[in-house]
Design a protein around this nucleic acid. Sequence first.
DNA 1: ATCGGAAATG
DNA 2: CATTTCCGAT
Length: 627
Amino acid sequence: GKTQGRPERIAFPDWAYKPESSPGSRQIQLWHFILELLRKEEYHDVIAWQGDYGEFVIKDPDEVARLWGARKCKPQMNYDKLSRALRYYYNKRILHKTKGKRFTYKFNFNKLVLVNYPFIDMGSTGSNVPQSAPPVPTGAGSHFRFPPSTPSEVLSPNEDLRSPGGMFSSVARRMARGSVSDCSDGTSVNSEIEEGNAGAGEDRGERGYRSIIHPRLSHEALFRMYGGPGNPVGHPGSRHTGHRIHPDSLSPFPVSPLPGPGGAGLLAPPLSPALSMTPTSHLPYTPSPTLSPMLGSHFSFNPEDMKRYLQAHTQSVYNYGLSPRAFLHYPSIVIPQPHRPAADKHPPHSAHPHTHSHPMHHPLHLGEEPPHMSPFKFKLQPPPLGRKHRDSQSHSKPRQSSLSSGSGSMTSTSGLGSSLSFGSDLSSASGSGLISASSSMQSLNSAGLPKIKVEPISDIESEEEVEVTDISDEDPDERDEEFELFSPRHSRPHPDEDLDEDVFKAPAPPPPGLMPFFTSQHSNPPQTKCIPLKLRFKRRWSEDQRMEASQEESDDKKVRPEEERERERQSNGRMETEEDGTGSREGDSPPPLAYEGSLATPLASQRRVSAELHRATAQLSLENKDC
DNA sequence: ATCGGAAATG
DNA sequence: CATTTCCGAT
């Protein structure tokens, strides 16, 4: 710790300044920046929250672009470019466009940010409250603050996330603004002169998000759970539809991001994994009343609140159609599924939907250090596919060629690779066996289809061109935007095979009142050691990824298939073998159980998953235990 | 306005 | 990798 050390100099390690951004301290990202602007009153004329939760409007596109350009030292930035960047977020699911409203976009808070940055508080710095906070979905107006990260947050001990007088607040404050270093380039058109910003000085890492998010694992740990009702698990066709995000295949655990001296490297995980998507648009969007349990007042750490908090979150998962799969296996918490026969190998006898019975008490590691997380990384842009320009080579134009603003340089920053990692869905986990899916897929082409353009997102549906008529698209009525983004385009009509994620569909909606949810017994004292556990996670993640990868195959157009996958197998035979079902193409893994009628026996699937989950949990717990 | 492919960039 | 840049299409 060094926190307080020298008065005039801030002793915090570099990483302390960039909580949100990943480990490698990369440059600020656009959405972070947007969020930043959004929280400041000074910019209300330029950009502000408006409309639904998470929705914001850019009132002065040029200005926003200018600011952004200043921050990035890209004097030539303009709205056209900025908006392109914004559009890339659609695929990443960080944002989506609010149709019909000019310059209006919407953060996908429900799925991404909330999880990744539970603390996000859009309040403005000094004054709290004003409009900065987008309305919470449920209607509660206050801005919710989630429980602070766990104490163990190694990071800065006192770093009160938001206290204005915080230690490095001054720096942070400055940084928060645009003070970009000086983009030294002759062309520096202006750069930011914005309001009195100061001048920049040291800019260690740019940005000071300090308050916005401070995620950290702990929460993550908290969230990772969910067994889901929908635990789709078996849902055969599910798999994500095509979103192209899948976990990075590399090891999920970033090696310490910053090799830095402080050794703190681990602390800053990038974003946390989250929920992926897997949308399901057909859900009736229930206004989920539950979502805001503690909204009115402040949240407190006590177990009660925590519990509620989690419940709410879970509920939101249901309500928003998030993929439960994202939460699969997590030792820390397990949420009982609504229907779920007893887990474990118990005989299938009647299953009691809720109340499942075993209280598996999985400790929540609250004060603990979550094993570093694992961020799934998202893959977005498909790298240069093999397809190349279809258009022909006729034009060869070396884009801009010279020009470059030159300068650019500087920006010391580390440059480690970090990257966002949003959750991807681990579809695999559950071993989704998508029988039908695969069949359909194959039908598409087995040999390598020459060129079909597979739609990225719609994917699933891509195959069928069938009806679909118009139902979906179009219609201006803004259906819930929340879902809007989920629905690829046309969708839904066939419940039957639709492989998409209906994940939730089947299982009845979670009974609001009954969500026993995690029995939080927080018991384990913070032991930050146990690295092994970490390893275990890693293992799991690898598995998941592998699976996911396997199933990817044709879909994506975006997202690179990455070839990694199958890495090494576990030394012993199995352990977790959950997965499969999927393509089964790889051939090596043991044949998944054959789910008979995928639909018909969802239970079985679920059961299986549950069991696995349990098993895994137990296993992890055990292992963890000794560390 | 908005979308998204493609190539370039650091 | 996350844009930045350019651009044709809608």
